[in-house]
Design a protein around this nucleic acid. Sequence first.
DNA 1: AAAATATGTTACATAAAGTAACTAACTAAA
DNA 2: TTTAGTTAGTTACTTTATGTAACATATTTT
Lengths: 108, 108
Amino acid sequence: MDTSVICPRFEAAISILSQRWTGLIIYQLLSGPQRFSQLTEVIGISGRLLSERLKNLEAQGLVSRTVYPETPVRIEYELTEKGRSLKPVMDEIQSWSQEWIEAPVQPN
Amino acid sequence: MDTSVICPRFEAAISILSQRWTGLIIYQLLSGPQRFSQLTEVIGISGRLLSERLKNLEAQGLVSRTVYPETPVRIEYELTEKGRSLKPVMDEIQSWSQEWIEAPVQPN
DNA sequence: AAAATATGTTACATAAAGTAACTAACTAAA
DNA sequence: TTTAGTTAGTTACTTTATGTAACATATTTT
C-alpha cells in the first residue's frame, strides 16, 4: 500500500551522491583532470577506496580514465559531459554551505 | 604538504548529504511535515535507521520534532529553515536526474 | 484483560569503509 | 646488475555502518 513513492530517477541520482566520497571526487574533478595520487592527497581518501570509487564512476559514465605511457606512467581521471553536468548541483551545495555551515573547524 | 585542500564548509555540507538516507529524508520532508511511520514506508528505510537519522538531523538543526498528545500519539517531523534552504540543492539533483538518469527501472 | 496503534529500541548478522603492507611495471642511479 | 624511486593500484585484515526482526512503552478501544 505504498501509493506515494519517491521518483526513481531522483532516487538513483541521490544514491550516487550519497555514497561516501563520490561527491568530493566529482567536486574535485570539476577543477580539471587529475591523477590518482593527487586525488588521494587532496580528498584524504585511501587508495583502496579511491580505486573502487573511480571504477564505479567510470562504469556510470561520469568519469573517464586516460593512460599516458610516459615514464613513470601518468593516468588522468576526468569528468565526462555527464559528470560535468553535475556542476550546478555542486554549486548549490557550495553556496548552501557558505550560508549555513558554521566556522570552518580545525581538521585534525 | 597539502597546499590545496577542499573547502571545509563544502566538505561539511557534503558529509551531511553523503550519509545514506539523509538526502531522501530531506527531500521527502520538503513536501511537508510527516510522521515516523509515513517516512519509513515512503522511503523504505528501517525504523532503526530512520530513528538514528532523524536524531542526527535534529541535532544539526535541519529537522524539528513535534509531539501531538492525541490518541494514539502523533509525532511530526518537519524541516527547519535550515532544512528548507536545501530545496535548491534538491531541485538541482532532481533536474539533473531527469536529464541524465535512464529509464526508471522496475523496483523489486 | 486482551488487542490495536504509534514510535521507537535492542540484539545480532551482514556489508561497507579504514588501515597498512604489498605488488607490478618501469627507470635511473650506484 | 643490484638497489632504490615512482606511480598506480591490490590484498589481507580490523573497525564501523547498515539491515533485520523481535521486543518495549504508552495509550485507547473492545
